[in-house]
Simulated scan of single mutants.
Amino acid sequence: MPKLKWKIFGGLVWILVASTRVALPILQGWVMFVSVFCFVITTLLLFSYIIGAHGGKTSWITLDAFYHGIAALFYLSAAVLQAYATLQMKVVLTQNDVWFKIYQEDVAAVVFAYLATLSYVIHEVFSLLRWKSS
C-alpha cells in the first residue's frame, strides 16, 4: 500500500486547513482544492490498482507517471501558498493562546503539504523509471 502515505499526508493537510480560520481565502482555497482533488484521485487509482484494473498495461504506467507529476506540481504550489498565508498571519495569530493554536495548525499544514509534495515527487521518479523501462 505505498499510496497510503500520500493519502494520509494529503488528508492531514485537508483537515488542518479546514480546521483553521481562513485568512486568505483565494490562497487557502487552492490548498483545499489540491488536497481534496489529490485525495480523491489517489483513492480512485488505489482502488483501481487493488481490483486489478491496471493489468500491467503501458497505458496504466503512463497514467500513473502523468498523474503523480501533476499532483507533485499541485502540492508544491499548495505548500508554497500555505506557507505564504501562514507567514502573513504570523503577527496576528501569535498574539494570544487561541490564535497561537491556529498558527500552529497552519504550520503543521505547511509541513504536511511539503511532505505530501516530497512523497509525490519520489513516486513520480519511480513512475518515470518504470515508464522508461516499459
Score class of each variant (00 low, 15 high):
Lys7Asp: 09
Lys7Cys: 12
Lys7Ala: 15
Phe9Asn: 14
Phe9Arg: 02
Phe9Lys: 07
Gly10Tyr: 00
Gly11Cys: 04
Gly11Asn: 07
Gly11Thr: 11
Leu12Lys: 06
Val13Gly: 12
Leu16Ser: 04
Leu16Gly: 05
Val17Ala: 04
Val17His: 02
Ser19Asn: 02
Ser19Gly: 06
Thr20Cys: 09
Arg21Cys: 05
Val22Gln: 05
Val22Thr: 11
Val22Ala: 03
Ala23Tyr: 06
Leu24Met: 03
Leu24Cys: 03
Pro25Arg: 05
Pro25Tyr: 06
Ile26Gly: 06
Ile26Gln: 10
Ile26Arg: 06
Ile26Phe: 00
Leu27Glu: 06
Gln28Gly: 02
Gln28Ala: 00
Trp30Phe: 15
Trp30Glu: 09
Val31Lys: 00
Val31Leu: 01
Val31Ala: 10
Met32Ser: 13
Met32Asp: 02
Ser35Lys: 03
Ser35Ala: 15
Val36Trp: 04
Val36Tyr: 01
Val36Pro: 04
Val36Gly: 04
Cys38Ile: 10
Cys38Lys: 08
Phe39Ile: 03
Phe39Met: 12
Phe39His: 03
Val40Leu: 14
Val40Lys: 00
Ile41Pro: 04
Ile41Glu: 07
Thr42Pro: 08
Thr42Leu: 09
Thr42Gln: 13
Thr43Cys: 03
Leu44Met: 13
Leu44Pro: 00
Leu45Pro: 01
Leu45Glu: 13
Leu46Asp: 13
Leu46Pro: 01
Tyr49Ser: 15
Tyr49Ala: 14
Tyr49Arg: 12
Ile50Val: 14
Ile50Gln: 09
Gly52Met: 02
Gly52Ile: 01
Gly52Thr: 06
Ala53Ser: 15
His54Met: 11
His54Thr: 13
His54Tyr: 13
Gly55Cys: 01
Gly56Glu: 05
Gly56Lys: 01
Lys57Asp: 11
Lys57Ala: 14
Lys57His: 10
Thr58Asn: 12
Thr58Gly: 07
Ser59Asp: 10
Ser59Gln: 08
Ser59Val: 09
Ser59Leu: 06
Trp60Arg: 10
Thr62Tyr: 08
Thr62Trp: 02
Leu63Cys: 08
Ala65His: 00
His68Val: 11
Gly69Ser: 15
Gly69Phe: 02
Gly69Val: 05
Ile70Met: 14
Ala72Leu: 09
Ala72Met: 02
Leu73Asn: 03
Leu73Glu: 01
